[in-house]
């Protein structure tokens, strides 16, 4: 439909009884874009993300993901997205190789494809020697990188990252963002939530949610200018200070 828009949201809303978790959010995300999805805890980020992933059905509004409708085409959506959560999401008592094979398997990749992908991935991450070690024995930074690689293993159109760098040291975080750029360069759209404002600056565009509403949406530079702020930290603080909901 619309040339290169992979996520199109129009007044997307989710209500739980009286509580409006996500209130009429409207935005587009373009192909290959790194889209930062910010907000304080309880602002409605997770709910919005769950709707976009096809995990939860919206109460009203419209949204298409990679051209598929969030109400009726969740199966197709799931085939076209990758997901990495804030909790470490690989199996600790499986080896690196088994994890890759498992996720390749449930995404329905062919055996040959899984094989070549596995080798390529191990090569790229420099995990060749660790391939047959249990994931539990890897340092956290490696686990996160592996997690990300597994999330884009099936070459999705969009990858959703839910606070992917929580608890990771700055050097590894930097490396992690290199991987994100690489993915974006290859045409994968990255939809990322984070609490680190320095990371927010790495995004092409940022939205900030406050109390279920999407208050602003722009590039980091424009946001800083319009809020007369020196850093994203200040922008976020000015917006989030007005929030009524907390955790």
């Amino acid at each position: 439909m619309q040339d290169d828009k992979v996520i199109v949201c129009e007044k997307l809303t989710k209500r739980f009884g009286d509580f409006i978790a996500t209130n009429e959010i409207t935005f587009d995300v373009h192909k290959g874009e790194i889209f930062g999805f910010l907000g304080a805890n309880g602002a409605g980020k997770t709910t919005a993300m769950r709707m976009l992933c096809g995990l939860s059905s919206p109460s009203s509004g419209k949204a298409t993901i990679a051209g598929y409708d969030v109400y009726t085409q969740t199966e197709q959506i799931k085939k076209n997205i990758g997901y990495m959560s804030q909790k470490f999401s690989l199996y600790e008592n499986l080896t690196v190789r088994e994890n890759i094979e498992f996720f390749g398997g449930i995404y329905g990749l062919s055996d040959e494809r899984i094989k070549s992908k596995t080798e390529e991935l191990l090569q790229r991450l420099g995990l060749k020697t660790e391939a047959n070690k249990l994931v539990a024995s890897l340092p956290l930074g490696w686990k996160q990188k592996l997690s990300f690689s597994v999330a884009v293993l099936h070459e999705p159109k969009i990858v959703f990252l839910d606070e992917p760098t929580g608890g990771v040291d700055p050097v590894t975080r930097r490396q992690f963002w290199d991987m994100i750029y690489e993915a974006a360069d290859s045409g994968i759209t990255v939809f990322v939530t984070t609490h680190y404002m320095d990371e927010a600056e790495y995004c092409n565009r940022i939205s900030i949610m406050v109390d279920g509403k999407m208050e602003v949406l722009d590039t980091p530079t424009n946001l800083k200018n319009s809020f007369h702020a020196r850093s994203m930290d200040e922008v976020f603080y000015q917006l989030a200070r007005g929030a009524k909901r907390g955790d």
Partner: peptide, 13 residues
């Protein structure tokens, strides 16, 4: 508990 269920639910499986 480990969060892998979410990953499975997001997958086409």
């Amino acid at each position: 508990e480990t969060g892998t269920m979410e990953i499975l639910l997001v997958s086409p499986f």
